[in-house]
Design a protein around this nucleic acid. Structure first.
Lengths: 346, 346
DNA sequence: GACAATAATGTAAGCGCTTACAAAATCCCA
DNA sequence: TGGGATTTTGTAAGCGCTTACATTATTGTC
């Protein structure tokens, strides 16, 4: 509108300018850039020189429009604020980059509605493929993505019951293994702090894993004290305090992830409770803070980097083959038994 | 090439389809979507209904090509692996989103070369504007950006000597304030662990801040034991161990950021040194881990969220006005004096 | 009620690239 | 060395949208 001292639109060189300078057609220039081996060397060099001389770089929109793809992959993660997804995203991005693709990240704040919106936004922005966390989302959304031919890969989960492609691990099994150790340590009064299970299959599976272990050892899984709360240290603190007011007081608090566990640990310290002497605490994820706290956290180690890297590889494969289906990949987790788990107080 | 069971390109509805269904021209549909108030209500409703019925959503490439902008803002941060930039980026993204813009993030791994490459990649992807960390980069790069008319904002710095727009704080002043406290506590043998100063003005300024404080109090700033290392807990550990072998042994180790400080703290513990009894340690940034460690870290608090949010606002303003210049904004940091700083051992 | 001003809509020309197809150049071997 | 096979290059038709400008409808004024 009001163009005060409106800059003159910096008139950038186009393909045609390069073509003219190199005395070839635009098609040849395009080939030089996209499939160099379909052009004879002498021509290619001439063209590339023209590109350099002019400082040419292709117009993204035009390329996307003509090629009907953008070379962009989207990822929607629940949060960027803590380290849970950071490492995997870093690896994911590196691998994409090595393959000439760009990453577009958005976060959903653990809200299915926001996630829905973000997915549509990323697709509208031209994401060629999508990485999502978990499987839990509406059928309508999956249809929308299928209709648009956007391949989707779910990370952080491996669930043989779900046919959609995924890269991840079996959350239930992993939590169950950990829970077995907790029970083996002698605990009978367990409690859990979890993320909201709504729209979060990882959280649900982890709760189920704990319950399964309890049931297998004759503990009443149905009456497990369980608090669902947001993923933050502060919420972990509060949930822990609430659980400690229960009677009988839990001797072990299993947390759905490390962030909650660190909050619990802090609150235990503030309440003057000794860990693991008075109460044991476990986490899930094995992010960096797990080893920073004192005592270090007993948790489930998740291979974040491998998951990120392989996620990229799978997605690239899906993109190449044009087939929306890929085989799901299961990664293994392993237990990290550290200082916060011990026998219950006598 | 080989199209095994190649999906039929899902033929998505276009603007023209919507126009036909709503019995209007494509121009009117476009207006409904981009400047709804330039269309009378009845028409608008008819068009929006057609949009809904058809499940239409605009083609990104076409829109970018025709409108000569993409609605995308790029950010290049040194790393995604730790929390230093996470919170600010989260706020940045939220603010952009509220204004209908999308964020494209890349990381440079603290390498100027990678950063250069990433900047060009983001611009090639059609970033309309860019958020970068610090001012340190080649003149050629700035020229490239200017030529393309891409507004750039530097975050994490405020340096009145540098005319380019920025949002951030005075790293030197902040570190100096902290150093004054360290010296006031009685320390005479200081040491520092910093990030590589090359291509990192924040690191440089922080070192300068410490030196300035030392000089002001008659300490030999030139002989300050200084180790430059990568930003990771492990590197912080190693650097700390090395510094402790110096004679005279430093009584206070000032770290260029919290990640290094936490590594130092861990190593102190492993070496059987009491903090702050035997040695004081300070950080910079005040990220979450600062309060998780024991004792909690004395550090400089940086207003991450405010920086991220305001960065978005400034960039939006630059985009709107078309003017590549904006006034730099200085944010205030403040000291968080916690458990890791005490008097030197007697 | 006529006419100018203003608002709403339509027409159509690109935006800069990719790619199917056509044409030209080069290669290979009898 | 001729002529088909193959490689290299050119021609030109879009890709789906925005927007300047033209046209038509509506409003207000006297």
């Amino acid at each position: 509108m009001s163009d005060d001292k409106s800059e003159i639109p910096p008139d950038l060189p186009t393909l045609a300018d390069v073509a003219e300078r190199a005395k070839v057609s635009t098609a040849t220039v395009s080939r030089c850039l996209n499939s160099p081996d379909r052009v004879v060397e002498a021509t290619r060099e001439r063209v590339l020189k023209a590109v350099r001389d002019l400082g040419y770089s292709p117009n993204f929109g035009a390329r996307a429009l003509a090629a009907r793809r953008t070379g962009t992959v989207g990822a929607i993660i629940p949060t960027m604020e803590n380290a849970i997804f950071a490492r995997a995203m870093q690896a994911f991005q590196e691998e994409l980059r090595d393959n000439g693709l760009t990453l577009l990240v958005a976060s959903s704040a653990y809200s299915p509605e926001v996630e829905d919106e973000q997915i549509r936004a990323l697709v509208a922005r031209g994401a060629d493929a999508l990485l999502l966390i978990g499987h839990d989302r509406s059928e309508a959304l999956y249809q929308f993505l299928e209709r648009r031919g956007v391949p989707v890969l779910a990370a952080w989960v491996h669930d043989t019951d779900n046919p959609r492609p995924s890269i991840g691990f079996d959350n239930r099994k992993a939590m169950r293994q950990l829970a077995e150790k907790v029970i083996a340590a002698g605990h009978r009064h367990l409690a859990m702090i979890s993320a909201d299970q709504h729209g979060n299959d990882r959280a649900r599976e982890r709760v189920a894993g704990l319950r399964a272990a309890m049931a297998a050892h004759g503990l009443e899984a149905e009456t497990l004290p369980l608090i669902e709360t947001r993923y933050s240290i502060e919420h972990g603190r509060q949930a822990f305090a609430k659980l400690m007011r229960r009677a009988p007081r839990p001797t072990a608090v299993v947390c759905g992830n490390d962030v909650l566990a660190v909050g619990a640990l802090q609150m235990a310290r503030d309440m003057g409770l000794h860990v693991p002497g008075d109460v044991s605490i476990t986490g899930f994820d094995d992010i960096e803070i797990a080893t920073l706290v004192e005592p270090p956290l007993t948790t489930v180690h998740v291979p974040h980097r491998a998951m990120g890297r392989q996620a990229a590889q799978l997605l690239i494969e899906m993109l190449r083959s044009g087939a929306p289906l890929a085989e799901s990949v299961e990664l293994q987790t392993d237990l990290r038994l550290r200082g916060t788990l011990g026998p219950p107080p006598v």
